[in-house]
Amino acid sequence: PMEPPVGGDHNPVWQNCNGDVYTAPIENEHAVHALEHGAVWVTYNAKAAKADVAALAEKVRRTPYTLMSPVADQKDPIMLSAWAHQRSVSGAKDPNVDKFLAEFVQGAQTPEPGAACTGGVDR
C-alpha cells in the first residue's frame, strides 16, 4: 500500500539493479522484483535537492544490488526501499543512507538472495 511499493505483486522480469541510475520513472512492478533479489531502491521526487540526487546517484553507481529513480508521488523527497522495509532520509549525507544499504543490500529480508541484478529491464 505504500509508494514506492516494497513488495507484493510484481513483473516476472526485474529492473536492472547493478548500480543502475534511471533519470525517468520506472515501472513499480519491475523495481519490486529487483527488491525481491535483494536490491535497495533509492527514490526521489522534485523536492529533493539536486546536490543530494547527484551524490546519491554516485553512491548507487558504486554499489551492486542498488538502483535509483524518480518517483513523483512519494511522500518524502528521498526514500530508500528494500523488500518489506522503507525509510526516508534527509539527504545524501544522512548516516541512515549507509546504515540502510549495509543492512538491506542482499540482507536477511531478501526472498531470492544471489538472484541476478542484470539481464532484466534497463529502462
Rank of each mutant, 00 (worst) to 15 (best):
P1C: 07
P1L: 04
P4K: 04
V6H: 09
G7N: 10
G8D: 03
D9N: 09
D9G: 14
N11W: 11
N11L: 11
N11Q: 11
V13C: 08
V13Y: 15
V13F: 11
W14G: 06
Q15P: 01
C17R: 05
N18R: 10
D20E: 11
D20C: 08
D20H: 02
Y22S: 04
Y22M: 01
T23G: 12
T23A: 15
A24Y: 10
A24N: 09
A24V: 03
A24T: 11
P25K: 07
P25W: 04
I26R: 12
I26G: 00
E27G: 13
N28W: 04
N28M: 10
E29T: 11
H30D: 01
A31Q: 13
A31G: 07
V32F: 13
H33A: 07
E36R: 10
E36T: 10
H37F: 10
G38M: 02
G38D: 14
W41D: 03
V42F: 13
V42G: 01
T43W: 13
T43Q: 01
Y44C: 00
N45P: 03
N45Y: 03
A46T: 05
A46I: 04
K47R: 11
A48T: 08
A49K: 12
A51G: 09
V53P: 07
A54R: 03
A57L: 12
A57G: 11
E58D: 14
E58R: 15
E58G: 10
K59S: 06
V60H: 13
V60L: 00
R61W: 07
R62D: 09
R62H: 12
T63M: 04
P64N: 09
Y65P: 01
Y65F: 14
Y65V: 00
L67A: 14
L67F: 15
M68N: 05
S69R: 05
P70R: 00
P70S: 01
V71D: 00
V71R: 14
D76M: 13
D76R: 15
D76P: 03
D76F: 15
D76H: 15
I78E: 01
L80F: 08
L80R: 06
L80H: 12
L80E: 04
S81W: 09
S81L: 10
A82G: 09
A82Q: 02
W83H: 14
A84F: 12
A84H: 13
A84S: 14
H85A: 08
H85L: 07
Q86F: 07
R87P: 01
S88G: 03
V89L: 08
V89Q: 07
S90R: 12
G91E: 00
A92K: 12
A92Q: 02
K93G: 05
D94T: 04
N96R: 12
N96F: 05
V97G: 07
V97S: 01
V97A: 06
V97T: 04
D98M: 03
D98E: 13
D98L: 02
F100Y: 06
L101Y: 15
L101R: 05
L101N: 02
L101P: 10
A102D: 01
E103A: 15
E103D: 08
F104I: 00
F104M: 05
F104Y: 15
F104W: 08
F104H: 14
V105D: 00
Q106Y: 03
G107E: 01
G107F: 10
A108R: 13
A108L: 03
T110I: 08
T110Y: 09
G114Q: 05
A116F: 06
A116L: 05
C117G: 12
C117H: 08
G119C: 06
G119D: 01
V121K: 11
V121N: 06
D122H: 10
D122Q: 11
D122R: 14
